[in-house]
Amino acid sequence: MCELGVRLKEAREAKGLSLKEAAQALSLKVKVLEALEACRFEELPEPPLAKGYLRRYALFLGLDPEPLLALYPAKPQEPPQAPPPRRGFPLWPFLLLGLLALGGAFLLRPKPAPVVEVPEAPPPTPRRHVLRLETEPPGARAYLDGFYLGQTPLATPPLEGGKRVLRLELPGYEPLEETLALERDLALRFTLKPLPAPRAGGEEAASPPPGEGGLVLRLEGRSWLRVTQGERRLYEGIPEVGAELSFPLPVEVRAGNPAAVRVFLGGRDLGPMGEAGRPVTRRFEAPSR
């Protein structure tokens, strides 16, 4: 396996994704990602299209695509061909006589009109655009397709265009999630809604804080996380070390590096979520009373 394939495979496994899951997220065939990770470039389409697949895969895994594109061979190697079988006696005199006979017959036939082959144009390079974000109040954590961008206000480097999912999170405010059509440079401003204040008593009283009745994940190292509640995705990305993420119950959590994720359920410290470097998925229910 070449260096390019090693980097792609390590990044995918760190996110806890299978080849099938990654292919479904990118709307690509599994054999395309298998060929990229195994460096079987001869199984990929023409280089311009294959490099487009490589760029999309690298961005999806949170990698800088430019160093990986530099590792892509200028011309994929062709498998070696077996030498022709050896003959017991020379055949060239018979072949020469046959070619002369065919050549004479061909010269006596009328020549057809020449056929001009038009080469196919390479696929266009995906356009890239800058995204500028502001929030009121500022300081919200911004995620694009589950990847952490930074805190608002911010301006991103040029990003590949298309439909992208933006998520904004700020303690004390409702998370905001919106699908963007990134077809040009965008400058967006959002006003976040504060969470409702808890009420004293009554059936409409607010639910207990996550530290008492919910789930808290404390990042003691780097790990990719995905948190879902039924069909709804609450979070996906790589939080900063030291961050604490709170979620209502029940939820399902998948971690790429479980040893870096300390779990607090109903205010109780349950310790690390699992072993280092071994992705795991766990479901957390509300504790019984």
Rank of each mutant, 00 (worst) to 15 (best):
R164P: 11
T179P: 09
T228L: 10
T228S: 15
P138L: 01
P93Y: 00
H129E: 03
P279L: 06
L36F: 07
A155D: 02
L154R: 06
G211H: 06
G5Q: 03
P65I: 04
L176S: 03
K111E: 11
K15T: 12
A38C: 05
E204Q: 15
R226M: 04
E66G: 12
A25N: 10
A121L: 06
P110A: 04
R226W: 00
A140C: 09
L176Q: 05
R289A: 13
L36H: 05
R56M: 10
D269L: 13
T228W: 07
E3T: 13
L49W: 11
L69F: 01
A50R: 03
A276E: 09
E21Q: 14
K9P: 06
V263F: 03
G104M: 12
S27F: 09
K20N: 14
L97W: 13
L61G: 06
A259V: 06
P194M: 01
T191H: 09
S223R: 04
E244S: 15
P157H: 03
P67C: 02
D64I: 09
P112S: 04
V130T: 12
E285S: 13
V6C: 13
A260D: 03
E285W: 08
L19M: 14
T228C: 11
F89C: 10
K163Y: 04
V261N: 04
K75G: 10
L33K: 03
A35L: 02
M273V: 02
F60C: 05
E220M: 11
A255E: 00
P248Q: 00
P84Q: 10
R164G: 05
V116F: 11
G266E: 00
F264Q: 06
A14Y: 01
L195I: 11
E244G: 15
A38K: 12
L245E: 01
R7K: 08
R56W: 05
P122H: 04
P124G: 11
P67N: 01
E275C: 09
T125W: 06
R87N: 10
